Simulated assay, not measured.
Amino acid sequence: MLDALKVVTIVIVGMLVGVEFSVAFVINRILGALPEDSNQLGRAHGGRMLGALMPFWYIGSLVLAAAWAVARWQHPGTGLVVTGAGLLVLSVVMSVLLLVPINNRSKTWTPENRPADWKEQSDRWDRYHYARVAVLIAAFTLLAAAALA
């Protein structure tokens, strides 16, 4: 049972990292190469679509990591799992405090109603997102290492 929990946790967190990495380094660069209106509309649509899915994915990843930590308490590698889960907590806190407020505004923007500083707000979201991706990669790495311990 513990082996299945490890695998499911690593797969779910790994897919989360992959999606968020793709947003940061592929999708946003594609959108950035589009004309201004298309860029902004694409980001708004992505914000609505992923904004609806990500809370479940982030919390689900955290619950799985926490369950793994509890299930293997006092076994080798538990510290790695706990630290990985702690980084997932940090990613959720970063999301709620830094990224979600910008996303909640930007997902409603159209070329007709967007604020004059929409690009600056999008750039700020991107910077916060890069930091969150780094935290997620670290969490995934620790969980993967714990599976080998």
Rank of each mutant, 00 (worst) to 15 (best):
M1D: 02
V82L: 14
M49T: 11
S22N: 14
L41A: 14
L5H: 14
S91V: 10
I30Q: 11
S95A: 12
G77K: 09
A24L: 12
L80K: 05
N39D: 10
W68F: 04
L16N: 03
L88I: 04
Q74C: 12
R105I: 00
N39W: 15
T108P: 08
G84F: 00
M54S: 04
R43G: 01
R29P: 12
G84D: 01
L64G: 02
Q74S: 15
K107E: 07
G32W: 04
A131Y: 01
G86N: 05
I12E: 13
L64D: 03
P55R: 07
F21A: 15
E20W: 09
L5C: 13
S95F: 14
L142E: 09
V26F: 09
A146N: 05
A144D: 06
I30S: 11
V100S: 05
L34V: 01
A149R: 15
E112P: 04
I10C: 07
A44Q: 04
R127D: 15
L34E: 01
N28F: 10
V70Y: 14
L2A: 10
L143H: 13
L16K: 00
I137Q: 10
Y130C: 02
W68T: 00
M54Q: 01
R127H: 15
L98A: 11
I12M: 11
L80H: 03
A65C: 10
P115D: 05
L148W: 07
W125P: 08
L136H: 04
I59G: 10
V7D: 08
W109R: 10
R29A: 11
L53Y: 09
Q40R: 15
R29D: 15
R132I: 06
E112R: 03
G86S: 07
A24T: 09
N113D: 08
D37A: 12
A71D: 02
P111Y: 00
H75V: 01
G14K: 03
S61V: 09
L53A: 11
V63E: 00
A149Y: 14
T83A: 12
T83V: 13
A67P: 03
V70F: 12
K107Y: 04
T83Y: 00
E112A: 12
V8I: 15
G42I: 06
S91P: 13
M15Q: 06
L5K: 14
T108W: 08
P101S: 01
W73S: 07
A85V: 10
V23Y: 09
L80E: 03
L98T: 05
K107V: 02
G84V: 01
D123N: 12
I59T: 13
L87Q: 06
I59R: 08
R48I: 03
F56M: 04
I30N: 11
A65I: 04
A33C: 10
R43Y: 01
L50Y: 07
W109V: 04
F140E: 07
F25A: 09
G14A: 10
A134Q: 07
W73G: 02
L41P: 03
A24V: 06
L88Y: 06
G46E: 01
D37Y: 02
L99R: 04
L136A: 04
I59F: 12
V92K: 09
I10S: 04
G18F: 07
A69Y: 01
L5G: 10
G46I: 00
V133M: 13
A85L: 08
R43D: 00
T110D: 10
L148F: 12
F56A: 11
A134M: 12
G42K: 13
V89A: 11
A71P: 02
